[in-house]
Design a protein around this nucleic acid. Structure first.
Lengths: 162, 162
DNA sequence: TACGGTAATATTGTGCACAATTAAAAATTG
DNA sequence: CAATTTTTAATTGTGCACAATATTACCGTA
């Protein structure tokens, strides 16, 4: 039953990526009914988190912060524009850029969204200390993944399986 | 700069779910070119991991192991059948079930797939100890998410934000 | 001031992921 | 055994996620 007591590199229990994949799916499933009351999907909620912090953003700046590209963001932002949460306008100073601004409706959504974290917490059942550790460890992985996706070369000697 | 030095519950850096979401996307992006050489996507690779371990499976048993439902698996398995990796046949003993068997081509794919973990490891740059800790912590989260998605009631007093 | 190169966004096509619904077979129960 | 309920998978419709490509705008230089 020990997860490490196994020498098959293709055993599901030895995979690092599968728990991350499963956790992401399960969390999305948990968020869905909560966010649907606000008329948001999870990636749309992430865009709102960024915009509530600092406006305007461009498609590119959102993509850097959320690790998404225009192929994902452009249609997503169009749906949010249709929903009346944001505006998409070409930057007159640089016509290549598209500026994303919040509408009043988008700003007003922040207040009810403040209850989202606790609504989610009600559906979970984990020690808060462990969650903070988990967050910081996954964040380090994300940072590592982000840099390794840019530079193919590596300097470390210690490597790891996934 | 401290991630915890912040009292805004809607700050992106305080989210637990966002790093998991980002890590899942980034890992999938990393797997893609490696698995495409085998003609697999990441969820298809997970199905193969299960089938290489034990055959046959049903749509339901695969769904339980991978936390996916028939809406995702049915079209995915049809593509794998079209690709010649598996067969889908109704269970004669219980006509509701669909049995998933490996074809010879599917079995033969295991040998080249043995190199997938190391191919992925080459593109990462993390200490192996930390990865094992991460895997076990995320696995506990997945277990917790799995149970909390079934039973709405909870007994713990300590809750956590996300 | 054309022009080659680069940067930012949009488009296209494929494959998930899921809620909600449907369909059919099996199990249960009166 | 007939009616009801449950189980299993498929279908439908929406929204990501991404690679590859296209489009348009900026930028530098000769």
């Amino acid at each position: 039953m020990d997860l490490t007591d196994n020498d098959d590199p293709l055993d599901l229990d030895r995979q690092v990526c599968f728990p991350l994949y499963a956790a992401s799916n399960l969390l999305n499933r948990l968020y869905r009914p909560i966010l649907s009351e606000l008329g948001l999907t999870y990636p749309q909620y992430l865009v709102m988190l960024v915009l509530w912090k600092h406006t305007p953003q461009t498609v590119g700046s959102l993509g850097e912060l959320l690790f998404l590209d225009s192929g994902t963001l452009t249609p997503l932002l169009k749906r949010m524009e249709t929903g009346g949460l944001i505006t998409r306008t070409r930057d007159t100073a640089d016509e290549r850029r598209v500026l994303i601004h919040l509408t009043q409706k988008g700003r007003d959504l922040r207040s009810p969204a403040l209850r989202v974290p606790e609504a989610l917490a009600e559906r979970l059942d984990i020690d808060i200390e462990e969650v903070v550790r988990l967050r910081d460890q996954v964040s380090r992985l994300v940072a590592s993944l982000h840099t390794s996706s840019q530079a193919t070369g590596s300097t470390s000697t210690e490597r790891k399986p996934c």
